[in-house]
Nucleic acid binder design. Structure first.
Lengths: 188, 188
DNA sequence: CCCAACATGTAAACGGTTACATGATTAC
DNA sequence: GTAATCATGTAACCGTTTACATGTTGGG
């Protein structure tokens, strides 16, 4: 999902500045779908303004920098509805953790258990964050997404907690008999 | 996880051609961690060869195009081990489906239920694919990843099957008289 | 005193995809 | 006959990140 579409989507909820949109993406429900930095958000908003899909109102604040408050135009709303019904792309789950796990045999003893611990902590934090952000909404879609993500986080946390022991120091292979464990890799 | 590292990782399992690496990424367990196309795999392998981290043996076949079989050098194995213990990046879950779901209120009636059906089918296919690919391994890491992904797929499928009804034609707003319909989705 | 939060913006660099070029073989 | 599989490679393009530039206010 490109930054352009995400900006339109966020603006259907209400007007916002580029800065606020960034926060919503990195701390909010949108965190589950996309990521974006200022370097992509600001140009996207400028372009959408040029094209007439969003309107921009400049606000002068004292003590604070000026802000540009963007809002959706009718054309923008129409465009977003069109984009929404396009067949969505496949989910892309990119997990360094999973990749490293596949090669746990090459890691120093205890490393994998540490990684799992860190991951459990991260998952718990992330789960709470999503929960907090969405709880105040009463929209069906948001409720659905929240339930979905909470279910997945719970499963992930439970699985890691249950299987951590596989990688604890005690259960390490212990290739005691002179066989060079460098070779033992032989898949299958 | 960059293509470079993924290539090194795959080559720790055994030698392979660029073509085979591509297949492993899109049909195998690596599908859960990364994606990559020829346009990134071939240059990565060339560069790794130049740098001495992989070796390349050219094989002439008759009837078939020549193939370049890559294998890991000692330096390559060392490099990979170093890369593996670097702190892994955060998981990135990019889901167009989730994004669209957040805006289900803007979709035509029935569209959301269709999307969910398609998604359930996709999840089931994907789950089976991962299951088939990894089942023949006896490596701890692969087993762990397989169990993890199977648990997540099951949870996702169950959630979607259980909550599909929220978006069925019958439960569509039908906001004839401005009455709000706030029945409890309560994902508690 | 410095850092975080607020606020916008640009240019260069990067990693990757898409499309193209080439070409034999096998299966439908 | 035509599509898929095998097999490699390059160049153009694209979206995004990173780093930089600028400036104020408030809290630790």
């Amino acid at each position: 999902m490109d930054v352009r579409t995400v900006c339109l989507g966020i603006l259907t909820i209400g007007e916002a500045t580029g800065y606020e949109i960034k926060k919503m993406i990195e701390e909010g429900a949108f965190n589950l779908c996309v990521e974006a930095s200022f370097g992509s958000i600001y140009p996207a908003l400028s372009k959408l303004t040029d094209e007439g899909f969003v309107a921009c109102r400049q606000e002068t604040q004292d003590g604070r920098p000026d802000r540009k408050v963007y809002s959706l135009t009718d054309e923008g709303r129409d465009l977003f509805k069109e984009l929404l019904v396009q067949p969505p792309g496949e989910d892309k789950h990119k997990s360094d953790f999973m990749f490293v796990s596949l090669f746990s045999a090459l890691l120093p003893p205890g490393h994998m258990a540490d990684l799992i611990d860190q991951r459990i902590d991260w998952l718990k934090r992330e789960k709470e964050m999503i929960n907090d952000v969405i709880e105040e909404t009463d929209q069906k879609g948001a409720q659905f997404v929240q339930g979905y993500s909470q279910a997945l986080f719970e499963t992930a946390i439970r699985y890691l907690e249950d299987n951590r022991k596989l990688f604890e120091a005690g259960s390490e292979p212990a290739a005691r008999n002179g066989v060079s464990r460098e070779h033992g890799m032989a898949a299958s």
